[in-house]
Amino acid sequence: MIMKQFTIHQFNGLDDSTTQRLHSLGLQTGSVLTTVRFYPFHGPVIIQVDQQRIGIRYQVFRQLIGG
């Protein structure tokens, strides 16, 4: 279990629909997210934001935390 905290740096580079969906889940630049679980082979990442757990793709996760 890798509970680590990250801050969302940016939404740039994501396509509009993904950004919009993440926004409507209440995520914005500066939101703090905790990673709950990484799936192997760069599979999805489960993150926790305000008590809700969301699964996102690894690439999306990298974009969000600005790497």
Partner: peptide
């Protein structure tokens, strides 16, 4: 080509 939106 489009990437899929995958958010659960």
């Amino acid at each position: 080509k489009e990437n899929s939106v995958f958010i659960v």
